[in-house]
């Protein structure tokens, strides 16, 4: 079930088209990755969802209704350019930010106590931000993002600028929040975290959405029918059973077993391929190569840019 959608978002800054007809659908309870090269328009889209800027065209819907300024209290947002008032005490500051999100002072206090305890920073309450290290400040920033129990969490590049320990902590927290029913959207360059965390992705390039869907489905669509097979037997026999629909990309022989990497151009099923191979050699392992998100990202962006270059000529 969808939690929120954007429909046909356009945003123009002077002569720059920052977003061009971008529609995404984020399912409830999912972790949604917003991917794209620098300057693609990710931050602009995130700011539109947060009601910080208004789109020139298009709408954002939250649980079926058009999003209003009241809904910002349901969102927790950690921007890419993040910081705190350096001269203000941490506790006071966290209380202030929580109250701005619509909590009463009392509610905010209860929730902050929970989070400060959880992150083991209760002794920092009366410290000023300028007294803390950067890593410590990041913990406080994370708390101020989640303190009001938002149902939608938006992180812009959450793992850039965080040290590995805090990055890991946030990863754990994101998963925990998802398990508690929150929906999470984050933008990132780090494809490794996408593989680890995301259920769904959308890829934005040059102000347009060029790809989206569940991670498994996206990968499936980008697989290129490559198989890696190790076997015991004669390479020539294998070559004989494979018809002209197959091309052999790589071939290695060693004493214990041989290895080939093949690609086929028609839609032969995996089982049929195995059946053919069984007649020629003893199969040790058989693996269909699924592309990594990194491969998908690069391939999708390159394809789009190449196509666009042709179109504009």
């Amino acid at each position: 079930m969808e939690f929120f959608t954007t429909q046909g978002i356009h945003k123009v800054y002077g002569s720059t088209h920052a977003l061009n007809d971008v529609s995404i659908t984020v399912p409830k309870g999912s972790i949604f990755g917003l991917l794209g090269p620098n300057g693609a328009g990710k931050t602009t889209l995130i700011r539109i969802i947060n009601q910080i800027t208004a789109p020139d065209q298009g709408e954002v819907f939250l649980e079926g209704h058009r999003m209003t300024s009241e809904d910002v209290s349901k969102i927790g947002y950690l921007p890419e350019e993040r910081g705190l008032y350096t001269k203000m005490k941490i506790g006071e500051q966290a209380l202030y930010l929580a109250q701005l999100k619509g909590m009463t002072r009392h509610q905010a206090m209860d929730s902050l106590k929970y989070w400060f305890k959880k992150f083991d920073i209760t002794t920092w309450w009366d410290k000023k931000v300028e007294e803390l290290s950067k890593g410590m400040q990041q913990k406080v920033q994370f708390i101020t993002t989640v303190v009001h129990n938002p149902r939608l969490l938006i992180f812009d590049e959450p793992f850039s600028g965080f040290d590995p320990i805090n990055a890991n902590l946030i990863k754990q927290e994101i998963l925990e929040l998802r398990d508690k029913g929150a929906t999470i959207l984050f933008s990132t360059h780090n494809m490794g975290t996408v593989e680890d965390l995301c259920d769904h992705i959308a890829l934005i390039n040059k102000s347009r959405k060029i790809l989206d869907g569940p991670v498994q489905e996206v990968k499936e669509n980008y697989k290129s029918n490559i198989f890696e097979i190790s076997y015991k037997g004669d390479f020539n026999q294998i070559q004989q059973v494979l018809d002209q629909n197959f091309s052999i990309l790589e071939h290695k022989e060693s004493l214990r077993e041989n290895f080939i990497r093949i690609q086929h151009t028609d839609g032969t099923g995996n089982n049929e391929l195995i059946r053919v191979l069984l007649g020629a050699a003893e199969i040790r392992s058989f693996r269909e190569v699924i592309p990594s998100m990194n491969d998908v990202f690069i391939k999708a962006v390159e394809n789009y840019n190449a196509q666009n270059a042709v179109n504009t000529k």
Binding site: N50, Q51, I52, V72, S73, I75, Y77, L78, P79, E81, R82, G83, L84, Y85, L97, L100, K101, G102, T144, T145
Partner: peptide, 8 residues
């Protein structure tokens, strides 16, 4: 801090 504030 301003972006956090204007998101609220």
């Amino acid at each position: 801090i301003v972006e956090v504030i204007v998101s609220s």
